[in-house]
Simulated scan of single mutants.
Amino acid sequence: MPPEPPAPVPQDELDRIVQSAADASAFLKAISHEGRLLILCHLSSGEKSVTELEDLLSARQAAVSQQLSRLRTEGLVTPRREGKAIYYRLTDNRAIRILDTVYELFCRCG
């Protein structure tokens, strides 16, 4: 006797699946840029100023700011102003978990 076909998935569950896929896609696009990923890696060790990030990345302020803007738009980082300096920190636990995995897979020696 052939197996019974699966029951249809309710529309509200399909809608949640589609939204989750869209969210995952946007998240992966945000971290897929080498510069943004490097920024996230540096921020994984703690809050950094824009100037610190410029030095760590050997990049111009405009380029770093552009990537930070995208990360901020995606909700992955949060800025904090102290005088003239702006500091950024990670605010998304998904990014932290993925960075841990990326580190384990690609950055560990040995």
Rank of each mutant, 00 (worst) to 15 (best):
P79C: 08
A30P: 06
A7N: 06
L105W: 13
R108W: 14
S49F: 04
P2D: 03
S32N: 07
K84N: 14
S69R: 15
L38K: 09
L76T: 01
I39T: 02
S20Q: 15
Y103H: 10
G35T: 04
L57S: 05
E13C: 03
P6I: 14
L43A: 02
P2F: 07
M1W: 06
I98E: 06
S25D: 07
R80S: 10
Q11L: 05
I98T: 12
I96Y: 01
Y103E: 09
Q19E: 15
I17Q: 10
E34D: 13
E34F: 08
A26V: 02
S65C: 11
R97Y: 02
V77F: 00
C41N: 01
S32C: 08
I17G: 05
T78F: 13
P8H: 00
S25T: 14
P79Q: 04
C41L: 07
T51N: 10
Q19N: 15
V18P: 02
Q67Y: 04
P6R: 12
D12Y: 05
S25Q: 08
P2N: 04
N93P: 11
E47W: 10
E82Y: 15
R94A: 04
Y87V: 06
L14I: 09
P8N: 02
E52R: 05
Q61N: 09
V18F: 12
E74Y: 01
S45W: 06
A62M: 12
L99E: 13
L68M: 04
S32V: 10
L56T: 00
L43I: 03
I17C: 13
R80A: 10
T101S: 11
L90D: 02
A62H: 09
V9P: 04
E13N: 08
F106G: 07
I96S: 10
L28D: 01
L56D: 00
